[in-house]
Design a protein around this nucleic acid. Structure first.
Length: 255
DNA sequence: AAGCGATGCAACCGCGTCTGC
DNA sequence: TGCAGACGCGGTTGCATCGCT
């Protein structure tokens, strides 16, 4: 049995939205809130399908959207999260307030892919291009401390509150493992020795030999931004590598 | 100035998942 | 428990704009 169309295509507009359509959509959502996308177009007096309205609102009209260029910091976050999650644009967008999955997806395909390729990094695998596929034991990898089964068990562990209600993460890790069997996705949850007084880190990257900063993970060991033990050693009290350089709370996956 | 390819981004499409009955 | 409708996501397309020749 075929899937029924999401809307009556014969009576809907397609293509670019007009100012009038935008205004109608904004006015309706301001008055009634988001949701019921299926019935929204008719109620709002729009000749659009619900999906189109939803997309327009989420990707363009939402008042909390951050317009404008991505910052270097956002670039790095996207790269890191993509190395972790793959093409899970909505999850990546969830870590970047004001950015949409569509925007990040477009930005990845137009800017970051090229940026990584210029650095000699395969954007799909985040490995150096021309790197041998086998024997990655000594290289830094994105590391988790548990397999997907263990991840689910961790849900009961209060210490790992970031994993609560996170079957999604298990699935992501699991699917990532399937997609990239050579990618180490063990989930490493270990408190930083220097930060025991602080809240538990939600997620740490742990290299096999040492914790790496973003720059080192990107193969930029001599970067002046390097803040790990592999690159320029800044001080004895180096903060190590807090995932993405973010505080633990920022990484609350479901915020 | 015109032609043309490259680029960037908004929007569409199809499928998987969720949810209510 | 199964089904159908609705929603959300990721991949892809189409078009406007830019920059080079």
């Amino acid at each position: 049995m075929g899937r029924s169309p999401c809307c009556e295509k014969a009576h809907t507009n397609k293509g670019a939205w007009t100012k009038e359509e935008d205004d109608k959509l904004i006015a309706y959502i301001r008055a009634h809130g988001e949701g019921c996308w299926r019935s929204l177009p008719k109620a709002a007096g729009l000749l659009r399908c619900g999906k189109s309205c939803r997309l327009r609102w989420i990707n363009y009209l939402r008042p909390d959207l951050k317009r404008g260029n991505f910052t270097e910091e956002e670039d790095e976050i996207i790269i890191k999260l993509h190395s972790l999650l793959g093409n899970k644009w909505s999850l990546i967008a969830g870590r970047l307030p004001g950015r949409t999955d569509n925007e990040i997806k477009n930005y990845w395909n137009t800017h970051i892919r090229r940026k990584l390729l210029n650095r000699g990094i395969d954007p799909a695998t985040h490995r150096l291009i021309n790197e041998p596929a086998q024997d990655h034991h000594d290289e830094p990898t994105i590391s988790f401390a548990a397999n997907s089964k263990e991840i689910k068990e961790m849900k009961n562990n209060a210490e790992l509150n970031f994993m609560c209600n996170l079957e999604e993460s298990a699935d992501v890790a699991s699917s990532a493992r399937e997609r990239c069997p050579d990618l180490n996705l063990e989930l490493g949850i270990s408190p930083p020795s220097h930060q025991l007084h602080q809240p538990e880190p939600l997620l740490r990257f742990t290299g096999r030999k040492s914790d790496l900063c973003l720059e080192c993970n990107l193969g930029l060991k001599n970067s002046q931004n390097c803040r790990c033990s592999v690159g320029v050693i800044e001080s004895e009290t180096s903060v190590g590598y807090d995932f993405l350089g973010l505080k633990a709370s920022v990484l609350d996956y479901r915020s």
